[in-house]
């Protein structure tokens, strides 16, 4: 067993230090950098949670087929591919920018 607290706990705690202790004490021109650090930690934490749900997909083939028009409206797999892409995009946004999923 590896020592506790684990990586997730450390990142959560480190992010709080950045936002609550460092950010208020920094000169204004460094606030952006501190916010970027906090944001990067938040993304990394959400990525840890989401990584178990990343579907096995042949993205290169799918991209090629879409470009070639094989999944255009009216083709048999169009609805299925549309739904697959929506799920895939939702998962990606849930890691990188969850606020957009909350806006209706």
């Amino acid at each position: 067993m590896l020592e506790k607290p684990d990586g997730t706990d450390l990142l959560v705690t480190a992010r709080q230090v950045v936002l609550n202790e460092l950010l208020p004490a920094l000169p204004p021109e460094k606030a952006f950098a501190a916010r970027m650090v906090a944001s990067a930690i938040a993304i990394a934490l959400r990525e840890q949670e989401a990584s178990a749900f990343v579907p096995e997909m042949d993205l290169a083939s799918l991209a090629r087929e879409i470009r070639a028009g094989e999944h255009d409206p009216g083709t048999p797999r169009h609805p299925e591919v549309a739904m697959l892409l929506r799920q895939y995009a939702r998962l990606r946004a849930a890691v990188s920018a969850p606020r957009v999923l909350r806006q209706g």
């Binding site: 950098a33 970027m36 650090v37 944001s39 990067a40 993304i43 892409l85 929506r86 995009a89 939702r90 990606r92 946004a93 890691v95 990188s96 920018a97 957009v100 999923l101």
Partner: peptide
């Protein structure tokens, strides 16, 4: 660069908006 790295994470919200 952390700024460039985070810029990459704008892509998923743009994809969401495109759909």
């Amino acid at each position: 660069s952390l700024e460039l790295a985070l810029t990459g994470h704008i892509v998923p919200e743009l994809e969401w908006e495109i759909l």
